[in-house]
Write a protein that binds this DNA or RNA. Structure first.
Lengths: 128, 128
DNA sequence: TGACCTATGTGCTTAAAGGATATATGTTTA
DNA sequence: TAAACATATATCCTTTAAGCACATAGGTCA
């Protein structure tokens, strides 16, 4: 019974990379935005299933601000509770650009592994 | 002084996806292998910079065996210390196939975000 | 008025990475 | 022949960030 927990590994089951930081930076690159709205934006990128937990978004936003990658100001006009509007700094822009480079490399690596997989698979089915 | 710790964080915060499990599974799909050799194999996939720490590989291998995705046996013949040779089980093969599907989806998501980035960039330079 | 949506935030637990260190075997070389 | 070195596996402890539950509060509408 104590082992049950461990044996349920599946891809995506553990704590994996959901590209939260670059998703937020990319969202803000399109236009200044705020936490609650970014939850929807990020969902569209497809790295998280369903909606990202709010706590996670706000945690990231605060960290980004502390690191000087975004700035924020309160928006009290308009309907509903006040929103904290974030926008990218120059540093944030540079970081996003680094992330894009990283992602491009990831795509290459992933494609290479995928290609190798199908090659091996083809070989195995040819000589079983 | 208390802030020093935070500012020493690596620039890109967020978990980097190292794809350790699928890399190991893919390595074993090509041919049965052992920890020390897999360290080199995995390096070639490009998801980790330099060599993966041995402790990490062995930890993964033990976990994979516990989960029934691989089996192992000691190889005492041949030069050098004995090797623990691992090979994929049917379950491991299925898991690898799931991983490939996941990776294909990741490639799509990544490409979509990258595309969006360059679109926004183009728009911004058109109307500054 | 109280249910509900919007909006932000805190706190605690756990999974996995990071990294240091230990152990042992066989091979080379000084 | 003893020391140095490459191979090979393994354990331990710390750090990091994800995962999740919960707390707070303003505004809208039946």
């Amino acid at each position: 019974m104590a082992e049950q927990k461990r044996s349920q590994r599946r891809p995506q089951q553990g704590k994996k990379d959901r590209y939260m930081q670059p998703s937020i930076l990319m969202g803000l690159y399109s236009k200044p935005s705020y936490g609650y709205e970014l939850i929807q934006t990020i969902q569209r990128f497809g790295f998280v299933e369903g909606q990202a937990p709010p706590g996670m978004i706000y945690r990231h936003l605060r960290q980004l601000e502390e690191d000087g990658l975004v700035t924020s100001e309160w928006e009290t006009e308009g309907a509903g509770p006040a929103k904290r509007i974030y926008q990218l700094t120059d540093g944030g822009l540079q970081m996003l650009s680094l992330w894009i480079g990283y992602m491009e490399k990831q795509v290459e690596n992933l494609n290479e592994l995928i290609k190798q997989y199908y090659e091996v698979k083809r070989n195995k089915s040819a000589q079983p």
